[in-house]
Amino acid sequence: MSVTLSSRRTFLQATVRGGAALPLFTSLGMAGSALAGNVSDAENNSLCLFEADATMGADMAVGVRQLGLAYQTVTLDDASGWSAMLDTLSTAHGRALAVLGRPATVFAVRSLLERDWRVVLEARHHRQAAEQMRHEFTGLEAPMTQLSGWVDRVSDPAQYAVVLASMKSGEFTSGNERKTLDLTSPAWPGGDFVSLLAWPKGVV
């Protein structure tokens, strides 16, 4: 695989687009040393809040951490897990957030964000037919455009999550007009998901 590591995002997108590194995390493990130089940069920009769900891929946390992105499990079921998320959010000011989970969970997380973050992109990912996933995006055009190029190549929520998390807020100049976009991809394992991309207040 030939990848130009001009930024973590281009690396990730190239990795997913190329489809040459599936399963994704094995590939990322191989590329770990190359990524190390960008770790602090990424940690300053992205925090991943992902629901711990078996259908999302057991290795997701490991994979995301290998990318140098801060990771926090989101759960509705456990007071200590919820507390940990609240603690993480309280110290995450200024970071971009990528959130992925089941609909009710993401709705709950979203309602905690309004003071310090702006949700610039929300997507509903649901199975349209046995072999097809539908992705309904609502949000700002810039991040939507970035995502639209590779969604059809993503084969599971874990891959999607990693690329979503790489969408750093500083890389976009955005207008404030909201758009919608519907895309399809091969079906993901598991049920319906919702994702959010939130940028710190002040960026938009």
């Binding site: 759960t75 509705l76 079921d77 456990d78 007071a79 919820w82 089941r102 609909p103 009710a104 969970t105 709705f107 709950a108 509903r124 649901h126 049920g191 319906d192």
Partner: peptide, 22 residues
Amino acid sequence: KKLGAGIPNMTEYNVMNWIPNG
């Protein structure tokens, strides 16, 4: 079991996953 012992959780919110856009 947690609720009966006053341990807060959000599990009941999962009812909103019952149907799409619940």
